[in-house]
């Protein structure tokens, strides 16, 4: 197969400002960014709680969350589909095949990633950080925020990793989004569709964007971490 021609066409599509292509990119970014904005505060709080508060069943819960890290996104999509479908318990919300359904799905996929990485970052924090904060008069919330700030590189890595996972996932988006052009078609679902049709140019163009965002996220993480992230 000649890859040169479709690749050339892919770049031409990207730089000619093809509206259909850029709409797909916009939908992908919008859905994944909103999902991360929704899930991050809760997931970081849960990760911190699990790392610092002992209670019966904590170990089992941590193992469950770590197990969910590798949950297939298509299964999350299937469960969400059943919940949101017309006959499902939340059918009356009419969310199936909307961006909101994709956002919920991606938030569910991102949740265990952010929780598990935050948990690990907080467990690795120097215990003197929390003690110092408390000893200097910080209340529970301020001391917790101080500890999180001290392990901010780990928490940032949690968020960026989760973003990378949801931005590139296809299973859930396809199931609950439905791959509707201009509405719920995002980069991964578009690549799958275009490739199956033999339209490689758009697939390659979107693949380039997907790779660029994935690498860009990592560079952004390294940039915000500065030298601190390498120590």
């Amino acid at each position: 197969m000649d890859l040169l021609q479709p690749t050339r066409e892919a770049f031409s599509l990207l730089f000619s400002g093809n509206p259909e292509l850029w709409r797909i990119i916009f939908i992908s970014l919008r859905v994944s960014l909103i999902a991360m904005l929704v899930v991050t505060p809760l997931a970081v709080a849960v990760g911190f709680f699990l790392a610092t508060v002992a209670f019966p069943g904590r170990r089992a819960l941590v193992i469950l969350i770590q197990g969910l890290l590798s949950s297939p996104t298509v299964v999350v999509g299937l469960l969400l589909y059943l919940l949101l479908s017309r006959q499902g318990p939340f059918g009356s919300w009419h969310l199936l095949f909307t961006q909101e359904a994709m956002i919920i799905g991606q938030a569910i996929i991102a949740f265990p990633v952010v929780v598990a990485f935050t948990l690990s970052a907080v467990q690795g924090a120097d215990p003197r950080a929390h003690e110092t904060a408390v000893s200097l008069g910080a209340g529970t919330t301020r001391a917790a925020l101080t500890t999180l700030l001290e392990v901010r590189f780990g928490v940032m890595a949690a968020v960026f990793n989760a973003f990378g996972r949801v931005f590139s996932e296809i299973g859930c988006s396809l199931m609950v989004g439905g791959n509707i052009l201009g509405l719920t078609r995002n980069i991964p679902t578009a690549i799958a569709l275009e490739t199956s049709k033999g339209e490689f140019a758009q697939g390659i163009a979107l693949g380039i964007v997907l790779m660029a965002v994935a690498l860009g996220v990592n560079y952004a993480l390294a940039f915000v971490q500065g030298e601190g992230g390498l120590k």
Partner: peptide, 27 residues
């Protein structure tokens, strides 16, 4: 506010020296 413990190897927050010294005042 009346009793403060200082570790053998004091922990300084990863901010600035001034922010460290002002931490308790901010609290």
């Amino acid at each position: 506010q009346e009793i403060i413990y200082v570790h053998q190897h004091p922990y300084l927050f990863k901010t600035t020296v001034a922010a460290n010294i002002g931490y308790g005042l901010k609290a």
